[in-house]
Design a binder for these strands. Structure first.
Lengths: 200, 200
DNA sequence: ACTAAGTCGAACAGCATTGTTCAAGTTGGG
DNA sequence: CCCAACTTGAACAATGCTGTTCGACTTAGT
């Protein structure tokens, strides 16, 4: 007689638990990059063994977490209208995704110890390119300053976003004011300085 | 007969080794915040046991490292002339100590896991106060912008310094250009925007 | 209801780290 | 020169992590 109908599709609670694990991992790793499998399991409300049932190793889990966060990030960034005035476009970009991009930054930083450097590089490439292109368009249109490399300006934006996240997490900055504060600061850096009158 | 002259002063090579341990710890911790005692011992060219001969625990060593780095930092900052034009004073401050302050930041970040939060807070207080006072003077004199809290401006300065350090360590920024780049960026943030003509 | 899929806790081995002890060796200072 | 101070490697216990195995249990799907 033939084999008694082996299962092909994954069970519903299994895929549900995978999601819970990923969510828990995002929470834990954003807080402490070295969070253990036990920490994540507890946060997910599952047994530690269950994690290994879905991810062969910690590195594999990290990879999946990075992939999901990056995908969500990409999705949010792609939805932003980047046409029109570069300043306004940048404000829209930051306004709608700064929390997300910063979360992505935290997770990627957490994975930095466990994933190969080559993987890291290609992870940064995608999102950075989007900001970079916008900045360079702003430069060509005479809106943004051109006396510093674009890569430096991207770095500064990253750092300001990160700094704002820290300020928010330590309650020194009201989350509702964050976007305004961030955009004002970033624009102060990016805006082409008036060359009409020297400062001094 | 009386006790045969017990020693009171530390031996010369002992204090020399303490210095070597501290130097090695600074190098290791700046590179990897989780560097082990074995790592530091190897970097110092000493046996692991010797470290415990001078510092009872890892936390105690970290405390000593933080103290030394902070003292050196304080010394450098105190030597800077902070009078006169606040913009020029800030440029002098950054120009003469940005490497040092960044090193201090790295070490303090490394100690963040092992030292009590209260200790951390008072560690940040000292150096930050110096920058804060300078910024506030610049505001009173109408040179720096007043539409953001001073604490935020200090944060931004910190982040820009940190970003520059990363850029230098990854060879994307020439160390000789660093000071110019940093000061230009920081001043772009701090400078009071011209309220004569709105951007749009 | 029956069965495969999934979960769970306990227990295991392997590894790295902290911190300690000891016995032997090396070195500085009086 | 001599002794105490110092250094050292080896070995030790304790801890915490990863990754695996096992047996018992629960649940989803048909």
């Amino acid at each position: 007689m033939p084999a008694p109908t082996p299962r092909t599709t994954k069970r519903a609670d299994a895929v549900r638990n995978v999601e819970r694990i990923l969510d828990a991992a995002i929470i834990c790793l954003a807080d402490k990059p070295t969070a253990s499998m036990a920490d994540i399991a507890k946060q997910a409300g599952l047994g530690r063994v269950t994690l290994y049932g879905h991810f062969a190793s910690r590195a594999e889990l990290l990879e999946a977490v990075v992939a999901q966060v990056l995908a969500k990030n990409e999705h949010a960034l792609a939805a932003v209208d980047l046409t029109g005035n570069p300043r306004d476009a940048l404000v829209r970009l930051i306004d709608s995704s700064w929390m997300l991009t910063n979360q992505a930054r935290s997770i990627i930083a957490a994975a930095e110890d466990e994933l190969p450097p080559a993987r890291m590089q290609e992870l940064h490439a995608g999102p950075a390119a989007r900001v970079e292109a916008l900045i360079e368009r702003g430069r060509r249109e005479g809106v943004f300053r051109t006396d510093m490399p674009t890569s430096w300006l991207v770095t500064v934006i990253h750092q300001i976003l990160h700094g704002a996240a820290v300020e928010v997490s330590t309650a020194r900055l009201d989350p509702r004011d964050a976007s305004k504060r961030i955009t004002a600061t970033i624009l102060a850096v990016l805006d082409k300085p008036d060359e009409m009158h020297g400062r001094h």
